[in-house]
Design a binder for these strands. Sequence first.
DNA 1: GCCGATCGTCGAACCGGTTCGCGTGAAGTG
DNA 2: CACTTCACGCGAACCGGTTCGACGATCGGC
Lengths: 351, 351
Amino acid sequence: MNIGEIAKRAGVSRSTVSYALSGKRPVSEDTRQKIQRVIDELGYRPNASARALANGRTNTIGLVFPPAGNHYTGMQLDFIGSVTEAAAAYDYDVLLSPSGVDSDRSFQRLLGERRVDGAILMEIRLQDDRLEHLAALNFPAVAIGRTAHPEGGWWVGLDHMALAAACVHHLADLGHRRIAFVNRPEQLLRAGYESAHRGLDGFTKAAAERGLTVRTYCCGDDPASGLACLERILHDDPATTALVTLNEAALGGLYRGLAQADRHVPRDFSVTGVVASRWAETVTPQLTAADVPAEQMGRLAVDLLVERLDHPDAPARHHLLAPPISLRASTAPAGPAPAGPPAGFGAPTHP
Amino acid sequence: MNIGEIAKRAGVSRSTVSYALSGKRPVSEDTRQKIQRVIDELGYRPNASARALANGRTNTIGLVFPPAGNHYTGMQLDFIGSVTEAAAAYDYDVLLSPSGVDSDRSFQRLLGERRVDGAILMEIRLQDDRLEHLAALNFPAVAIGRTAHPEGGWWVGLDHMALAAACVHHLADLGHRRIAFVNRPEQLLRAGYESAHRGLDGFTKAAAERGLTVRTYCCGDDPASGLACLERILHDDPATTALVTLNEAALGGLYRGLAQADRHVPRDFSVTGVVASRWAETVTPQLTAADVPAEQMGRLAVDLLVERLDHPDAPARHHLLAPPISLRASTAPAGPAPAGPPAGFGAPTHP
DNA sequence: GCCGATCGTCGAACCGGTTCGCGTGAAGTG
DNA sequence: CACTTCACGCGAACCGGTTCGACGATCGGC
């Protein structure tokens, strides 16, 4: 059931069938209907590979996703969902590419073998060889995240510096003086993940501005690491009264650690950070946080990519988002003795 | 940079290059090396569309995912991740197909246009027209989930009946007599989602066996609905001392509702269910639950599909999984007055 | 020294679409 | 009635691979 078969049954040539379908040349109403009837009858659909071969477009975009190794954070997965849906609206399919350990292999697969018309990249690093490579090839790509020098690129980013700073100011305004920062895993920080770096920068600078006493921690992407991290925080400085986290997967562990240390949230200890609303609303008490607008970002990335595909010479565009902090229930004014533990609880002592 | 260009530079014919690469006919060591040098020099990779057109295989599998509409549960997203990784190990790419509102359109896109060699389907319904359609076409597909009559099909399933029953027995063994069941949204139950139906069946039967007093509820896939659902549970029967949930997205809301009603978990109220371990470990106290082995299921589904693709006449195979309940911290023996509220709390009265 | 097998390579056809250039018949015009 | 004009449809070439049949060279056997 190929185009030749349709042509034969409709008594026309293959090219006429093609033109009838694409509308790129006029076809008389009679023939069009004759062809359409045969097509409907046989349930014909043009072969995607053949079409891609002939006109050089696959109508597929690649979603290059993270070297996460073993597991995915909720945020990454939210991007996948939103990108797929946005792409479907433009009649594009989405090809998943785990740019895993050997990022080269699946990367080459997408580009070298021309499986996709364009790509969306996630988990951007400050120095990202993948993006440099794509830019050198002038391959249509859009990054979710931005490098150290994003000028002239196509991307959708979150202003992690501003968001982390906003968290600090929120806590400082509530009177907290000793706060901790819970970052993504050290491995990712060392790899240069932009959210980890810019978030840390924003936190550090804002804390310095407000004259706060701070400590920063890296923490694995799972509840157990969150629990361990919180124990370290209270061990290193029992007078800590608040924390800011970028690590949503650790959130449950952080809360559990606070419960085990008998610090009631938010009465004794405030928690805030940059976290997808799905997670912020799952924990009890709900997290006051800058909600990562994953859905919007995925949609915007697709919008940009489609624009770039449709207009190859269009000037580069980008979106930098900085959602406001959603006030929920996990932060409260610091206790009466700002530099020490809350009154009436007896300062914890070092073990 | 196509195969002709390589052939020209290596001073051989196009077919020789093809054979040198595929190894389907012997090529002398000299020529092979000559060709390989040119290929390395130019960084040539064969065009995927052309290859697919010529030999009829795209080396891509379709992942048909749910009509979720607006949002994805963690479990669905876990499947996407594990399927993608397992497929990469077999050198297959994964094409995402949101079989959204008009399941036909993207479905036809995958099959009719021959974009994929095979498909993995998620969110199976007891009567699933998609699977019937595929079976009629003898199209290589594997379901994650099983229909009412899965005989002779290819699938990877979870024994929801057994799991829900195990939860009930666990609670009954602890002395609970009045328990509630929190299902997925009513809309999904009506649509015939197998997990919702089989889970409900398993719960109901096991509860009858043990002579328990039960009520069952449907609940939206979000924390707010979980909170509302819990309020309804306690309103309908304040003597309820435990619940079983299939709804992981609502979990946070259920816990919050219990906290607001001053029911301490697990002292006053036990919670269990069928939930991915990622979520079970995030809440405090951690959830005693049958962990959905999403990663394993995705991998098995890919294994089956690849087997089916490699051996078109292989007999149908399947895997029915029934992971044990992981004992964590959310269940405890019922209070001294099994049929009423825990002693010392004063029985809540109907409003 | 001739013959048949074997090895390596080549040309051509094919997969299923798209697109370009051209031919043909009908309509319009002086 | 002859001549242009235009709408419509056709055939052929092409996209970039794979695969089949055939052909020339090399080799061993008698």
